[in-house]
Design a protein around this nucleic acid. Structure first.
Lengths: 343, 343
DNA sequence: TTGAAAGCGCTAACAT
DNA sequence: ATGTTAGCGCTTTCAA
């Protein structure tokens, strides 16, 4: 076994408590004692055991972060920001990739709770997880998603108004035949984006046409398949709203594979910035979420709850996403013209 | 406090040891006792405390993973694969983002060691970290990087031969004026890629020209700045080899901003697949690393060492990366022709 | 098959 | 300012 504080204590001829005190509240230890301890530590090359400390102090300095897909740049950016913040405060991150799978989420939740993590940041999949969390004393914050019927702290984006903005943009250009490839409607963000899609259509008296809507896993290959299916229909829509970044990449690939032009044959607006967005031509018009802001706030909120220095009340933060103009949209009339030019 | 095994024991009228045994080696507990324990656990809703178990059993079921940049899709893919593998075996991942900063790496290493993690997967920055690790009893595996003078298990890609392949491709097309925007030469992968760059030039008797080489942080903005600087020189190279995926995105953006065409004005080969590579036009010719394979093997190797079921000997794995042909290269003669067409 | 006692490395609470 | 004692929740060891 490794060196323990009792070894240091013996070596320095003080009590273990003095050593422990030196480690935690050095100002409460006399200089003379301190010196003896420091020397002993150096001589024995002491390394504290955080696990033992966790159990004794009932604090682990570990934060659990449950995210749906670490390969998705939106989430990996979030975790990057959270990591930076937490590292600064000497908290560590236990990484939990739920893959949008509520069973895996549930399993990870068990795990985090039995590990006595100090807090949990969760991009939740199922309400049940959140309800379970509410029954524990572990502080937690929901990110990106929330549930109307459960009162919790959360920080999300207004996915619905983002979708409305996307649709308004297309409708103003003259599109009425607008397809939508969305992520799983069972998940909050996609349900909200769907709501926004419908809302915008309704506002402009455009009938909702189920044939124009596809729902698929929020992954590139799924977006590809959905787009392929959608655009091979006889009556091709003039525009499409894409439900997330990875779906967008897949759908755009499908559009290219079908030899269609953007925006020549089809206008697109994506939810989320695309990976490598700076070098994708045409530049894709998108709804951009304030990633840094979301993640930083989530981290701050959680720490506030852990340290009990934050607001006492439940904090609910909803941010507005932003439409970023690219060159992936034009009016349906120009489309035909353009298309002819390119043929 | 939560329910402990002693509570279960009392409730079930058995000893704590029986409960502990049931939890760990149920086959050593009589059916009758087992039943009593199960009932008590259900009634009291028992949740084991993994931390207490860690300290008593001296095993944490936590793996530390130290990676340089979680926002880089190469690394986030690695961690995704590692997570999947470890999750399956009920190991958890403590996420450490070193940001290619050896101090942060060192700090994280301290932390992992004091937390008694069961093993460490590290994409190392400094030799010192590795030497320190060797002095501990914690099993570890190096990934992506290795150090010639320290004997350890590792799994890497032959960055040098990858660079040679990239250069050979350009040279065969007729390029002799090939620039190189590399990551920090102090890091193993970039040092090796540089070695490959030089080796290929030498092999074809092309003199090494420092004016064609830039070294920058392995980030998009740095690649952008380097490329802007490089291509604004009077005597523009006909081709450029880009040291990693993020540098590539930055450099390509710079090329576009300078109104240059790929491959019309400049041919490029990138190390690593680019994010969204499927929809980037022209398709970028690149050196692709077998990410899944690297990460899976790293995880397997580590688990083998932890469980002591793996090979006793030090395992050294070096994989060959692969050239993937795109449309980002052409011969320098055609370049001028093409350039004219586009002008 | 079961249990009692001791201990993992540390800290909280209470002395002195 | 320092030390003593007890205990965090679990497992290991040894005995029954």
């Amino acid at each position: 076994m490794a060196i323990r504080i009792s070894d240091i204590a013996k070596h320095a001829q003080v009590s273990t408590m003095s050593v422990s005190r030196y480690l935690n509240t050095p100002q409460k230890v006399a200089e003379k004692t301190k010196l003896k301890i420091i020397t002993a530590m150096k001589e024995l090359n002491y390394q504290p055991d955080k696990i033992a400390k966790s159990i004794a102090a009932n604090k682990s300095f570990i934060i659990g972060v449950i995210i749906p897909d670490i390969k998705n740049p939106f989430f990996s950016s979030c975790i990057h920001t959270i990591e930076g913040y937490m590292n600064y405060l000497n908290f560590n991150i236990l990484l939990c990739n739920s893959e949008e799978d509520s069973e895996k989420e549930s399993k990870y939740l068990d795990l985090l709770l039995t590990r006595n993590v100090d807090g949990i940041i969760i991009f939740p999949i199922s309400v049940n997880s959140v309800i379970r969390l509410k029954h524990t004393k572990t502080p937690f914050v929901l990110v990106d998603r929330r549930f109307a019927d459960v009162e919790t702290d959360y920080i999300t984006v207004d996915h619905c108004s983002g979708a409305v903005a996307a649709m308004e943009h297309l409708i103003k250009l003259g599109h009425r035949n607008i397809a939508f490839i969305n992520g799983p409607g069972a998940l909050f963000p996609y349900a909200e984006r769907y709501r926004g899609y419908c809302k915008a259509l309704k506002h402009h008296n455009i009938p909702l046409d189920d044939a124009l809507i596809r729902e698929c896993a929020p992954m590139q290959h799924a977006g590809y398949d959905a787009a392929l299916d959608l655009f091979q229909q006889g009556d091709r829509p003039t525009a499409v709203f894409l439900g997330n970044n990875l779906i967008s990449v897949g759908a755009i690939k499908a559009i290219y594979d079908l030899n269609l032009k953007i925006p020549g044959d089809i206008s697109i607006v994506a939810f989320d910035q695309l990976p490598s967005s700076d070098i994708i031509r045409p530049k894709i018009t998108c709804i951009s979420q304030p990633v840094e802001f979301i993640a930083t706030n989530a981290a701050m909120l959680l720490i506030g709850k852990i340290e009990k220095t934050g607001y006492k009340n439940v904090q609910k933060v909803t941010l507005k996403p932003e439409l970023i103009h690219g060159q992936s949209c034009c009016s349906p009339k120009n489309q035909n013209a353009n298309a002819n030019i390119f043929i």
